[in-house]
Every structure is written in C-alpha cells, then in structure tokens.
Amino acid sequence: MDTRTRIAWNLRRLRIAKGLTQENLAVDAGVDRSVISDLERSKHNVSVDLLDRLASALAADISVFFVIPPEDDEAAPPLKVGRKPRA
C-alpha cells in the first residue's frame, strides 16, 4: 500500500468512526467537500498543512494518517444517506 492510499484509508476510517460526513469534515477543516472526496479516493496529493487541519478537525494526531492498516482490515462502511432529522 503506497502512502497516498494509506492516508486515504485512514482518513475515511477516522471520519466514519467519528460519524462525520465528508461535508461536515470539510467545513471543520476549511476545505471544499470535493477535496475530502478526492483524498479518500487517493485522487489528491495532500499537503502537510491540510493533514494538520484534518487531524485537528478529527481531534487526532497527524501520525494516525500514516498507520499501516492490518491485512484483514475491511473498508469502513458508508454512513447512512441523507440529512439527520432536526431535534
């Protein structure tokens, strides 16, 4: 697994674990939602500054993006589609 794919894998895993949509994470990190989508599909070369903003938005250390996933680790399941109902 190359580094770009590893970052994509870990970004998606962390975002799903926090229950954030791509749009929510994008707003928190100050980027467009399409940037998050491109990163998760390994289509965008990420800068250290952006990794730092993403880590802050996910309340994690930047090093989590470089963790090698276990061989048997499956892809993170998608979140439910649609907006959450208002309280």
Rank of each mutant, 00 (worst) to 15 (best):
Q22C: 05
F65A: 03
V48Q: 12
R6D: 05
V48R: 12
A76Y: 02
L50T: 08
I7H: 00
N45W: 05
D32M: 06
D72S: 11
W9K: 09
K84Q: 13
E71A: 13
V48Y: 12
V46A: 04
G19C: 06
D2T: 13
D38K: 14
S42W: 05
K80R: 11
K80A: 11
S63C: 13
L51K: 00
L11G: 09
W9Q: 12
V31E: 04
D32A: 14
L14P: 02
V64K: 03
D52N: 15
D72V: 08
R86E: 10
S34A: 14
P69H: 05
H44P: 03
E71P: 07
T21I: 05
D28F: 13
D49A: 15
I16Q: 09
A87V: 10
P77S: 02
R83P: 12
A8Q: 03
A8S: 11
L20F: 15
V35P: 03
D32V: 07
R15Q: 04
P85R: 09
R33C: 01
S37M: 01
H44M: 06
V31L: 07
A75C: 06
V31I: 14
D28Q: 15
A8W: 03
L25W: 09
N45T: 15
P70N: 10
D52W: 15
I36W: 04
D2G: 10
I62C: 09
V64P: 01
R6L: 10
V31A: 05
D72H: 10
V35D: 04
P77M: 02
M1S: 07
K84T: 07
D32R: 08
N24K: 13
L51P: 00
S34L: 13
S56R: 14
G82M: 01
R6V: 12
R15W: 05
P77F: 01
T21E: 08
H44I: 02
S47C: 08
S34Y: 11
V31K: 07
R83D: 15
F65N: 00
P70F: 07
A60I: 02
N10C: 08
E23H: 07
G82C: 01
R4D: 11
V81N: 06
R13Q: 13
T21Q: 09
G19R: 04
D61M: 06
T5W: 11
R33S: 04
A59M: 09
L50Y: 10
R41S: 11
A76E: 02
V48G: 12
I7Y: 02
D72K: 09
T3V: 15
D28L: 15
A17T: 12
R41V: 06
N10P: 06
E23K: 08
S56D: 14
P69K: 05
V67N: 06
A57N: 05
E71Y: 07
A57T: 12
V81C: 04
K18M: 06
L58M: 01
L51Q: 00
